[in-house]
């Protein structure tokens, strides 16, 4: 099953984490989040891990895709 996706590229702090939080509330099984810089990547990863999720990070050109699952 495809995970719910969030495009948080180019968003200022703390919007990528907030969008991830809202998406996870709607889809507790997991989400994938696309971010455009390392600050957002680390913030989203830290948030996911604090909530007991695993975060797999893939580089997609200039961007990062975080696959967040239980």
């Amino acid at each position: 099953m495809a995970l719910r996706s969030v495009d948080a590229r180019g968003r200022a702090c703390p919007e990528p984490v907030l969008l991830t939080k809202k998406a996870l509330a709607a889809s507790p099984e997991g989400v994938q989040v696309l971010v455009g810089n390392s600050t957002s990547r680390e913030n989203v990863r830290r948030f996911a891990e604090a909530r007991g999720y695993k975060a797999e990070i893939r580089e997609e050109g200039e961007d990062f895709l975080l696959i967040i699952t239980r």
Partner: peptide
């Protein structure tokens, strides 16, 4: 409304 990747449309709460 939140923009999504890969065509999924979601509505923010």
């Amino acid at each position: 409304a939140e923009v999504s990747v890969k065509g999924e449309v979601q509505v923010g709460s």
